[in-house]
Design a protein around this nucleic acid. Structure first.
Lengths: 161, 161
DNA sequence: GCTGAAACAAGTAGTGT
DNA sequence: ACACTACTTGTTTCAGC
């Protein structure tokens, strides 16, 4: 069980927004030494709270204009693992989850356009052994997308996982 | 319409994986000058291909153990905008999309546990004027999650958007 | 469009309180 | 747990090819 204080929270808020922000500048903002910033970030990494820093590539800008969530139904539950293995081979599928409800598997796809999406589903996904059918939820617009709130961080201890 | 070459692709692959990787080291790897790395990254930013570098915070490590996609049905289509405004006020909702299919709106929620998720839906989402009902797809497991493929980058020109 | 050198800024590690 | 110092390394700009 870890404990996070105000400094951890503020550091996270800043580096989450800009991973290349100089530690020295963060230190200045928070009025602490830059070795402390360094130390805290090292600890957050050790704890696994932050795993890596990544530059975010805009999918639309490189041609992937159709974003869609797709629910997958299986012929039988036992096919789950092998279907996941099949889905992983399709590079346009960026996320894959086991879910509760009407579908066994829920995926996120980025395709060039609707036609490309249809091709991926009909020529690849539907041919994976165990897949009974799919329902697509094509995203017309993403209204907002944001990272998890850090508000609760200093108010409670956080459990290991 | 932009054109991307091998150098752009390689730089993107590297900084996407580690946003704090020194440009000088990228230059060494690719056997180019570090001012060129600098130059290319500046251009990729100007074009909007990369917007920002972010440290990724592990939601599970800070206590958000229940991830769920939720489909929202509306009483009437005209409520869409005001429902989005209501959803935006709930910090546990990290993503919100207009979609095709059975639901008008599709959201992503991170909650502490199933009970917390239920509270968010029943005490907040269902009280937003215009919401007719919701269906939850709770993620038992995320099998994989990865960024968009850059394979196609050098093979075709990429359209503006 | 690309390189290389020089000025500047930041990251790192060790020491002390 | 934190700050200070000295040292190493990376970033950025600009003249020149």
């Amino acid at each position: 069980m870890h404990h996070f204080d105000y400094i951890d929270q503020q550091i996270l808020l800043q580096i989450r927004e800009d991973a290349r922000k100089p530690f020295s500048q963060i230190a200045e903002d928070l009025k602490i030494s830059n070795s402390l910033v360094h130390q805290r970030i090292r600890k957050l990494k050790e704890q696994g709270v932050i795993a890596k820093a990544e530059f975010v590539v805009d999918e639309k800008k490189i041609g992937f204009r159709t974003k869609s969530y797709v629910g997958i139904r299986l012929r039988e539950a036992r096919y789950a693992e092998q279907v996941v293995a099949g889905l992983k081979k399709i590079p346009e599928i960026l996320e894959c989850n086991f879910v509760s409800g009407n579908y066994a598997i829920f995926i996120l796809i980025f395709a060039y356009d609707n036609h490309h999406l249809r091709k991926i589903l009909y020529e690849q996904v539907h041919h994976i052994d165990g897949v009974a059918g799919t329902d697509s939820f094509i995203c017309f617009d993403t209204n907002f997308k944001r990272p998890v709130s850090l508000e609760a961080l200093t108010k409670k201890d956080v459990y290991d996982q």
